[in-house]
Simulated assay, not measured.
Amino acid sequence: MSIVEDLRGSRELLLNLTRREIKGKYKRTALGQLWSLANPLAAMAIYTVVFALIIRVEPEPGDPSGLDIFALWLLCGLLPWSFFTNVVNGGMGALVGNENLIKKVHFPRIALLVANSFSWIFSWSIEMVVLLVALLLVGANALPWVPLVVLFMALMSLFATGVALMLSVANVYFRDTQHFVGILFQVWFYLTPILYPVSLVAGLSDDVGPLIGSVTLLDLYMLNPVGEFVEAFRNLMYDNRWPELSTTLSCVAWAVAVFFVGYSIFKRHEKGLAEAL
């Protein structure tokens, strides 16, 4: 059975699970979904002070937008990163967190992970509105690029869900997975061009020279798929231009490949999840 057939037969369940995820995140809080803005805005403030004022990282102005505001440049990188990590972390714990439901009711288990992704898309949309308003206030022509941003974030959602599918299965059998991924994300964050521009890595790569044959440090650095999504997001929202063709093709390739690999692994282990839990 394909994923479309899986989800088509459980549309109402998927809707209810998504609704539960959205309501459950900030249940009994006064501000509700507005808390979804707290983490990225707090991180933006802290990193802006450290990297813009103390370390003095100076990315190039937006091309062709001309924007030269480090806080907004940073936020354009933080939002896709936080979306990716939230989808993966939430999906990784979806099976273990719904152990009782999985053992008692028969339904497509993938609905749990898709509902998690949908709930974070909802939260991301709130963050996007705030970013868009801020960009418009400083004169950026970001509004025409929003449909393309949605398209790229749909690709990133596909990529993140694929990673979550693989890790959710691993977490059922090896509960150390979530702790390992926490450390991995700390390293991955600093290996992604969020706090600094790629040009700094390119300069370091030129100084170091080829590592193995003609392979350079920059070549290895550019293998980071999340970096491609961050650059695409920044090109659209901050630079106000279409991403490079290589970046676009890379995002599409990573999204499709990782999702189908994750889905195939998930389907292979789906029948034994109840027993393993």
Rank of each mutant, 00 (worst) to 15 (best):
L131E: 09
V114S: 05
V57Y: 14
T85E: 14
L136V: 10
A71T: 00
L158H: 01
M156E: 14
I54R: 14
I102C: 07
C76S: 12
I126R: 08
P108C: 11
S65H: 09
A115Y: 00
L148K: 12
I69C: 07
L72C: 10
T48L: 10
A164S: 09
L112Q: 04
Y47T: 07
V49K: 04
F118P: 04
W81P: 00
F122Q: 09
P80M: 08
F107L: 04
I55R: 11
V138G: 10
S119D: 11
V87E: 00
N98I: 00
V130D: 12
F122G: 04
F83S: 02
A140C: 04
N89Q: 14
Y47C: 10
D63I: 02
V96E: 08
L113Q: 13
L131N: 08
L72H: 13
V149F: 05
D68W: 06
P64I: 11
I121N: 15
P108H: 12
L135Y: 07
Y47A: 11
E58Q: 14
A94M: 05
S157H: 07
F159V: 02
A142R: 14
N89T: 01
V146M: 11
A115F: 00
I126H: 12
G97S: 14
M153E: 15
N89P: 00
G162K: 02
V96R: 12
C76H: 10
L158V: 09
D68N: 13
P144C: 05
G91L: 01
N116M: 01
M92E: 14
I102K: 06
V163T: 07
S65G: 06
V138C: 05
N89R: 13
M153Q: 15
G162V: 00
L112R: 10
V138Y: 09
F152L: 04
A52M: 11
P61S: 10
L101T: 11
S123C: 03
V88G: 02
L151R: 00
L101V: 12
L137H: 06
I121G: 13
P80N: 05
V130L: 15
L95N: 03
L75Q: 11
D63T: 14
V105L: 10
N141F: 07
V133L: 15
L67M: 05
A140S: 13
F51Y: 13
T161Q: 08
L165S: 06
A94V: 04
D68V: 01
L151K: 01
K104M: 13
A115S: 12
L67K: 03
M166G: 11
L112N: 09
P61H: 06
V149R: 07
T48V: 03
A160H: 03
L72N: 13
N100L: 08
L112P: 05
V146C: 02
S123W: 00
A154I: 10
V87L: 00
P59I: 05
L158R: 01
V105T: 10
S123A: 12
L72S: 12
I55G: 11
